[in-house]
Structure formats: C-alpha cells, structure tokens
C-alpha cells in the first residue's frame, strides 16, 4: 500500500497548493509578467475569450503570433460578446472579443480595438425560390405574422424560423435593426453558433436564418446549399461591407482594459497590422484599412 499512500499525499498537497491561489482568477494569465519592450523577447500566455464569430479568426492570428514569438501562447475560448466585454474586467481573460461595438456604459470601462468588419445577413436555402425580402417582411416572418412562403412569393410550405440563443450579439444587432423584441420572436429552431444556423438552413429548404456574412460566404463558397439575401436592397457581400453601404455591418473588436501594455499591446498591434489581412480575408471578413 505505501505507493498508494504517497500518491494520495501528493494529491492532497496538490489540492492544498491549488487552494491557496486567489479565488476566481486564473493563475495562468501571466501576460502582465511578460516583457514587451522593443527587441526584447516576448514571453507569457494570453487568454482571449468572447464572441464565437471572432474566435476562429483570432485563433488563426494567435497561431501566427506564436510562430513569430515562440515564447508566447495565445489561448482562445469562445463565450459570446458579453463575456468578451466582462472577462477582461474580472481578470478571467487578458483580452476579450466582441462582434459588436461597445455600449456606452461599457466604453467607460474597457477599450475596443477593431480588427475587422463583418455584417449580419439573412440566409435562405438555395432551393427556395424567394430572392429578396424587404425589412418589413423579415420582421413579419420573425414575429409570426407571415407563416408560409407563398405570402412572400415562394412555395406553400410553412416557414422554419431560425433564431439565435440568448446572449449572442448577433441576436441583439438583428433585433435592433428590425426593431423587434426578443419576446415577440416566434422561432421554430433556436441555434447557438453560426455553423449550427448554416447547417439548419442548408438542411431545410423552408428555413430562414441570419448569421455573420463572413461565415455565410465561406460556407456558400465551400458548397453549402445556402444563399445570402440582400439587406434592404444592398447585396450581402464583403465588398459592400468594405464600402460601408451594407446596412447591418458591425465591427469585430478586441476588448481590453484601457491602455493595454506589454504582451497584450504587442498582440493587439499585430492583430491590427497588415500582416494578418490575408487571414481576415480567408475568414471572409473585411480588414480595417
């Protein structure tokens, strides 16, 4: 039995050691300890949490950053934009990600660094004959006033309304643009992340959904049977987001406490530089010029 005893003892010790750490903070966020003066070697770990729309992009940027600075680790966790704004304040994360602009009360506490632009567009299945919907029609579909596609020039079938789960900024922006209240939306399916919405619409000829333009474009490009509807007459393309004519555009932000320093500053500078524009385009987002 002695071996088992030692093991138990070790575990108990490990437990105590972990117990004395500061509660509610991750000991692993050592970004502040890192040095980032010019020419000095960057070292440490950055924990990034927040928007699932930003996460794939930031993860790719993080990988490239790690290649440049072998002593650095960038951990990306998804968790929605509101987490992206809250986590840097509580210290759970070094950087947050938010796929929307900061609200007024938030802007007083944290700072946003826009790394790309994206939009939100309505998507339909490719088999659906409908090619355009007015803002009022979309609102009527989402509130259940229009229930079948023939009311908007489509087939007899009932409309499958795909909505986002609570806490997602895509939901907030969509509701605000169409002046809807969350409680009035009559959804048939509630989805979490972009891909689940794309998958639901791709697998259902009578579904309507709304997702990030970037995610929708790259899905359509890789062959998913979906189409992006124009918003108020403006086609949902990367180009129209770039030139500012697309009505439901949004910034993709990195969020920090005001005046970031050290490793955080270095990472933000890198993420906002031209060196990552190819990664941003790869994800069908619009780099900020």
């Amino acid at each position: 039995m002695p071996r088992a005893f030692t093991l138990l003892g070790l575990l108990a010790l490990a437990g105590c050691g972990a117990g004395v750490g500061t509660p509610n903070a991750k000991p692993a966020t050592k970004a502040d300890a890192a040095h980032a003066a010019d020419g000095e070697k960057l070292e440490g770990k950055l924990v990034v949490t927040g928007s699932s729309t930003c996460a794939p992009l930031v993860a790719e940027i993080g990988k490239r950053f790690e290649q440049r600075h072998p002593g650095v680790r960038v951990d990306v966790q998804t968790g929605g934009s509101s987490r992206g704004v809250a986590d840097p304040q509580t210290g759970i994360a070094d950087l947050g990600m938010a796929s929307r602009a900061l609200k007024e009360d938030e802007a007083r506490l944290v700072q946003a660094h826009t790394l790309a632009l994206d939009g939100i567009c309505v998507i339909l299945n490719k088999a659906n004959p409908v090619t355009e919907l007015g803002d009022a029609q979309v609102a009527a579909i989402y509130t259940g006033k229009i229930g079948t596609w023939n009311e908007v020039g489509g087939s007899e079938a009932a409309i499958t309304v795909v909505n986002k789960a609570e806490g997602r900024s895509t939901l907030e922006l969509f509701l605000r643009y169409f002046e809807l209240k969350s409680a009035n939306v009559k959804a048939s399916v509630v989805i979490g992340d972009n891909e689940q919405g794309l998958k639901t619409v791709a697998g259902n000829p009578d579904a309507i959904g709304y997702v990030s333009v970037g995610a929708a474009e790259s899905a359509a490009r890789s062959g998913a049977p979906i189409k992006l509807l124009p918003m108020n007459g403006v086609a949902a393309t990367v180009e129209n987001i770039r030139n500012g004519s697309f009505p439901l555009a949004r910034p993709l932000n990195l969020v920090t406490l005001p005046n970031p320093t050290g490793l955080k500053k270095a990472f933000i500078e890198f993420a906002l530089s031209k060196e990552v524009h190819d990664l941003i385009r790869e994800q069908s987002f619009v780099p900020v010029e």
């Binding site: 968790g79 509101s82 987490r83 789960a165 609570e166 959804a187 048939s188 399916v189 509630v190 989805i191």
Partner: peptide, 27 residues
C-alpha cells in the same frame, strides 16, 4: 431545436434543461 416552449405536438421543437445549460453557460 432548442426553442423554449412546451411542445404542442411531436413535431414541435423544444429545449431541455440540460441543453439549456450547455447552450447558454459559456455566454
């Protein structure tokens, strides 16, 4: 389907308590 409602038929979407936690906890 994860719509929060008491389903009126077998074909209605609905959400379970477990799915609710998994869907919203991260956010």
């Amino acid at each position: 389907g994860n719509v929060v409602q008491v389903p009126k038929s077998l074909f209605d979407p609905m959400r379970t308590l477990t799915a609710n936690i998994a869907l919203e906890m991260g956010y």
